[in-house]
Amino acid sequence: MKFREIKTRLENVLAENEDWLCELALKIHQEPEISFNEYKTSELLVCQLLNNGFKVKTRLAGLPTAFLGISRKDKSHPAIGFLAEMDALSGLGHACGHNLIAVSSLGASIVLRKAFPSLKGSIELIGCPAEERGGGKVIMNNAGVFDHLDFAMLIHPSNRTEIYKLSLALVEIELVFIGKSSHASAAPEKGINALDALVQTFNSVNSLRSRLSGHSRINGIITDGGKAPNIIPDRARAEFWVRDESLDRALEYAEMVANSARASALAIGAKARVKIRQELAYAPFVPNRTAGAVLWEIYERIGIKLEQGDEKAEMGSTDLGNLSWRVPALHPTIAITPGREVAPHSVEFARASASKQGLEAMKKAILAMALMGYRVMTDSNLRKKMKAELREKRKLK
């Protein structure tokens, strides 16, 4: 079947469904839910899957909001997975556009299935909680949720449209300092100030920055600094995120942060409880360039203007990184703020995620993903090449 005929069939089905898809994206935007609490969002997506003939499994990997929608009764090959990220940012709502990601992946799954009901293989929508923090896909990946897939993808809203964007490994650290409370004015000498140990840790971490490589990042916040100014804090808590292009280096820097905390506590007689969450570490994302070349052509043929820049510019982190070392995967972007540099994780980006431009970009993403899904499912040579590329990258890891 020629590209034009495939595209026309998908466009016709999309046109029949675009109104309710846009309404759903706005509804999710209006009711943002943070990591591991995406109950309403998950329910809305599952409801639409059931309404459109998908078989649904819930509570994947023991996660209450994770789900799998399958176009067949059972998993079959070739199997493609469209990933629906669902969580919002605390205090900012959908300032990373996950409402658009969730619905574009849902739309691609439904449109592809309806346009080509006899397509051999399995079209799957995988509901993925806690991308922003907590590593939902890391947990699901460790549980083997994605192992059967031949290909996985999502399209992420951004301020520019690119096929390739690399990401940093990420390691989370929790620090809790235990001191001794006392009256801050009448008897400060009888206390042990846990906050002092925490502040000193921040100072020590700042002194480590000269040892970091070019794309390394250490960011921290204080989540508990005491109860009142007239009480010597007997407990203080902080969270640090350590990032680097290499997971091994990120873990090395995380241990430096941990040592800074232990030394700061020891210096004043406090105790430091350190938790490096290695089991939830995000691996750096590795794009499948064989698949990327196909998607690049699709973008161009359906009129999506590419603005591919430096793949290492403005890198963040994603738990799709872990999945990308197990299954051929793509994490392209699409602009929802054309002509404007609007940073993700901002109030302005949250507004853009519910804008007319955002919804139009979502519809383009649905078409692009559906076309990509069709190509992967009908081209066995492409699947072989994608898997061969991933095998080679694993050898070099």
Rank of each mutant, 00 (worst) to 15 (best):
393 K>D: 13
127 G>C: 05
391 R>V: 13
315 M>K: 06
69 G>I: 10
203 N>A: 06
38 E>F: 05
3 F>C: 06
77 H>Y: 08
134 G>T: 09
1 M>N: 04
231 I>Q: 09
35 S>A: 15
52 N>C: 08
40 K>V: 08
392 E>P: 05
58 T>L: 01
324 S>Q: 03
295 L>T: 02
40 K>G: 09
71 S>P: 13
12 N>G: 07
8 T>I: 08
31 E>V: 12
10 L>R: 04
275 K>H: 05
11 E>F: 03
345 H>G: 06
65 T>Y: 00
79 A>H: 13
4 R>A: 15
299 Y>V: 12
305 K>F: 06
47 C>N: 14
118 S>T: 12
199 V>W: 07
41 T>M: 04
20 W>M: 10
229 P>E: 04
42 S>F: 05
394 R>S: 08
8 T>F: 06
251 L>W: 03
357 Q>F: 06
347 V>P: 07
155 I>E: 01
115 A>S: 11
351 R>S: 09
269 G>Q: 09
372 M>V: 05
270 A>D: 00
130 A>P: 02
333 T>R: 00
171 V>A: 01
156 H>Q: 13
54 F>V: 09
232 I>L: 08
196 D>V: 05
238 A>E: 08
378 T>S: 11
48 Q>C: 07
131 E>Q: 00
328 P>D: 15
187 A>V: 14
331 H>A: 01
288 N>C: 12
105 S>T: 11
156 H>M: 05
76 S>I: 12
85 E>D: 02
46 V>S: 02
344 P>R: 08
22 C>Q: 11
369 M>E: 15
149 L>N: 01
68 L>I: 14
352 A>T: 15
292 G>W: 00
143 A>E: 14
14 L>M: 10
357 Q>S: 12
380 S>E: 15
373 G>Q: 09
364 K>S: 14
351 R>E: 14
281 A>V: 13
42 S>Y: 00
96 C>L: 01
155 I>A: 00
272 A>M: 04
274 V>M: 03
283 A>S: 15
168 L>V: 10
186 A>K: 13
155 I>C: 02
63 L>Y: 07
74 D>Y: 12
131 E>L: 00
71 S>H: 10
108 A>T: 02
304 I>F: 03
236 A>Q: 11
285 F>E: 06
96 C>K: 02
206 N>E: 14
285 F>Y: 12
194 A>V: 04
55 K>N: 12
307 E>P: 02
200 Q>M: 15
188 P>G: 01
351 R>A: 13
153 M>Y: 02
72 R>F: 04
192 I>D: 05
89 L>T: 04
214 G>L: 12
273 R>E: 15
28 I>F: 06
48 Q>N: 15
98 H>L: 09
23 E>L: 10
145 V>K: 02
244 D>H: 06
60 L>D: 03
